[in-house]
């Protein structure tokens, strides 16, 4: 078995500014055979490494079927992501992955699929959107509910029209009032509250965002008749090793790095609102 600590070199082939403090870096493994072999499932993450500063766990935000290009949408938050933000096209960094569980796209067939994202939480869900766009006919209604602190935080906003055109409905909201914003104001759960749901029993919801947002999204979904077993959340703790050996990302009985980050809601519901767990 290969050494799970081994890093591979990856080059930034494209860097796109997204929202303030957030940019998408398309990485390409420099080794040809590794590049060909690299595959991931929607919702999985890589460890990105900046020598001297360390690793950060970053979800892959690309299209699972696009070979060789691995986009990561990264928000500057700590030393590592800050250092990555100063890199540009052509620079290289270290990569390990992919790691973790994935969104249950295999369960979505012939169901209404609702994605609820908060802020940069849309990034780990984007591979699911790519999947919907490629296989639109496999799903029933596809809806993305997207919330952000303010309109400037609406990730991938320029793609929304394209997504809508290709059959994925996108509803956006700004958490807070914003000058010049004529769209919806209010938290993303209010969008879910009034989303038409003709057949909640068939709906499957995936959500990614701040833990509190996900919890109340799930509560709202349950109130709307979606089963807990049909709700999926992507949790966050500090992943240090990504391979379940360092203990950092434990959440109750789970190691988020190998059992998660994506969980079926009913598996974590009982421990989600226990403080300081």
């Amino acid at each position: 078995m290969s050494n799970p600590w081994q890093l591979s070199s990856a080059r930034i082939v494209e860097k796109t500014a997204e929202t303030p403090g957030v940019a998408t870096y398309v990485l390409q493994l420099t080794d040809d055979s590794l590049r060909r072999r690299f595959q991931f499932r929607p919702g999985q993450f890589n460890m990105l490494y900046v020598p001297g500063l360390g690793e950060a766990a970053i979800s892959i935000s690309g299209n699972p079927i696009q070979e060789g290009l691995i986009p990561h949408t990264i928000r500057e938050a700590g030393n590592v992501t800050h250092a990555i933000s100063s890199l540009s096209t052509g620079d290289t960094l270290g990569l390990r992955g992919p790691f973790g569980s994935s969104w249950p796209t295999e369960l979505c067939e012939d169901r209404d699929v609702i994605l609820v994202a908060g802020g940069i939480g849309l990034a780990p869900l984007r591979p699911v959107i790519f999947d919907m766009l490629s296989n639109r006919d496999r799903y029933r209604r596809c809806t993305v509910l997207m919330g952000a602190r303010d309109p400037s935080g609406l990730l991938y906003e320029s793609d929304y029209e394209d997504w809508k055109r290709r059959g994925v409905d996108v509803l956006v909201t700004s958490d807070r009032p914003a000058d010049g914003w004529h769209g919806n104001v209010g938290v993303v759960t209010t969008l879910l509250d009034r989303l038409p749901l003709p057949d909640p029993a068939s709906a499957l919801l995936m959500t990614c965002g701040p833990e509190v947002m996900m919890w109340y999204t799930a509560q709202t979904a349950v109130a709307r008749g979606i089963a807990e077993e049909s709700i999926y959340v992507s949790l966050e703790r500090n992943m240090n090793c990504a391979i379940g050996l360092c203990g950092h990302c434990q959440f109750g009985p789970h190691f988020l790095c190998k059992d998660g980050p994506v969980f079926r809601f009913d598996k974590v519901a009982s421990i989600l609102r226990i403080s300081d767990l």
């Binding site: 020598p51 500063l53 360390g54 240090n240 090793c241 050996l245 360092c246 203990g247 950092h248």
Partner: peptide, 13 residues
């Protein structure tokens, strides 16, 4: 078995 990985650089990095 908990552990943390830290970066230890030589003089010139």
């Amino acid at each position: 078995f908990c552990s943390s990985v830290t970066e230890v650089a030589d003089l010139n990095g």
